[in-house]
Design a protein around this nucleic acid. Structure first.
Lengths: 136, 136
DNA sequence: TATTAAATGCAACATTGTTGCATTTAATAT
DNA sequence: ATATTAAATGCAACAATGTTGCATTTAATA
């Protein structure tokens, strides 16, 4: 996606600090969603609290999204362009491969809208597990 | 669901200890999926490590399932009868209400199977956010 | 270049995850 | 009813992550 993270940050009214840019570059440079522990070890020079606050503000402002899988650890991936501070729209499936353990955002939109009678569905996401294309 | 948790436990080859029964009763007695912190405070007499191991083993053996929402905390709910140690099958949506903050398992099956070209999908679940029937 | 709101780094503490080990207990055989 | 045994428990201890406050630094702007 966006190579110029500084501009992306300013578009979201966030200061384009070196820390934020390197966090975005790190996550975007990962082929799959990136585990929190890997982000932290790859950026071990970065203060832990700063990373914590940076990730939160990037999620809050629609630049990255947080993927929760069955295990405990959170994964992060950069957002497509239609996310904002108000809402994250992900027309993809969060797929966790039981073989290689990678978590990838698969661009497949089998459902465009989820209807639940009596409920107002504002957002939804699908998490799938199985074997990914590379491991098959 | 099952009122006789002792038998349910033995069916899954787990010893029917008082601790496990009270954990199951507590979670089942909650109208919605129960936040970990609430489970712990409701069962504060229970050793924290025992609760941790109990929850894990109940999840592993298909008696409860773990629901992860966008926030950090895990929620737990009892399983329907078709779960096992091999696989959790949940023909429902995990719905988090942005108003009352409750996480409920909504029995709606808008999709029976998820197809992703090139991938083997073994299991999937849907997490939705919005406004629940009680808050509308 | 000066101003200022935001971001950072550090200390400190809270919560939850995790393992090892000695003790207790549920299930089973006798 | 009792003995046996594998599993469960409770406790200590430590690791990882979440979270806040505050003084200092810095990016954006005037």
């Amino acid at each position: 996606m966006a190579a110029d993270w500084s501009n992306e940050l300013r578009t979201k009214n966030l200061k384009a600090t070196p820390n934020r840019v390197v966090v975005l570059e790190t996550i975007a440079g990962n082929n799959a969603a990136m585990a929190y522990s890997k982000i932290q070890s790859d950026l071990s020079q970065l203060d832990r609290v700063t990373l914590y606050r940076t990730l939160n503000s990037l999620v809050d402002n629609g630049l990255i999204h947080k993927v929760l899988v069955e295990e405990n650890e959170a994964f992060y991936a950069t957002c497509s362009s239609n996310c904002s501070s108000e809402e994250h729209h992900h027309q993809h499936v969060h797929f966790r491969c039981t073989n290689c353990k990678e978590v990838t955002c698969v661009s497949s939109q089998p459902i465009n809208q989820l209807e639940i009678p009596g409920y107002l569905v504002q957002n939804f996401e699908i998490q799938a597990t199985g074997v990914c294309n590379l491991c098959l």
